[in-house]
Amino acid sequence: MKILVPIAKVPDTTSKIAFTDNNTKFSPDGVTFIMNPTDEWYALVRAIELKEKQGGEVVVIHVGLADSEQIIRKALAIGADKAVRVDADPTDAYFVAAQIAAHAKTENYDLIIAGKETIDYNSYEVGGMIAELLDLPCVALVQKLDIENGVATIKREIEGGTETVEAKLPLVICAQKELAEARIPNMKGIMGARTKPLTVVPADATEKLTTVVNYSLPEKAKECKYVQPDNVAELVRLLHEEAKAI
């Protein structure tokens, strides 16, 4: 089974978020970049588990510049077999999805497993867009994925519960929590990652559908109104009369 896992590079959750150029650009100053957590912890690890069980190959693909090498090597250290980097600035989700779809068209993957969202734009876009570009079925918010005889059995989140779905491969999956347990690369993996193939390919020209014109930060932090622990009645009064929340 041949599995493709798109990975994104995002600012670490604890990063201070700031913008430059009149609030039109994200400021990378002092920011640590990491592999997007849902891509790494769930999509990539489940892909590797399926390969370990059934044989095949796991390829990671990343749209980004040369400074992304560290996260690509980490994916290889965790257990991906090879990597492709599309050499371009990932300006928007459609651009990224178009690059990944263009690669996938030439390779006949059985399965594409993406993370449900990136933690920077929280947009839940790339997996669904790849599926539409390739005219493939897609199931999102996936918590469980098993493959037998070319048929996937999938548990996905729905409002107030989960649903079990079956679909034939090829297929696009958007992974979330519970799909797998995060793996920490071991020394053997880290050493091996250095010699695994990483191919750099140029980007396809793609039209731009959506533009982020600028950003804004919350005007000021909330002011917490403290209530004394011996005066819980006051909290209930404030919630009822002031906040009108109960």
């Binding site: 989700a93 459609y94 999805a97 449900k116 734009y121 929280n122 947009s123 839940y124 876009e125 790339v126 997996g127 669904g128 867009m129 599926a131 539409e132 570009l133 897609c138 199931v139 999102a140 918010l141 996905r156 989140e157 729905i158 409002e159 958007c174 039209e207 559908l209 959506t210 533009t211």
Partner: peptide
């Protein structure tokens, strides 16, 4: 849950700009 998947598919299908959320 469903909109988060259907909307990006529609964005591609319709060649439409998309605001997620």
């Amino acid at each position: 849950q469903n909109g988060k998947l259907l909307a990006p598919r529609l964005s591609v299908r319709l060649k439409a700009g998309y605001v997620p959320g």
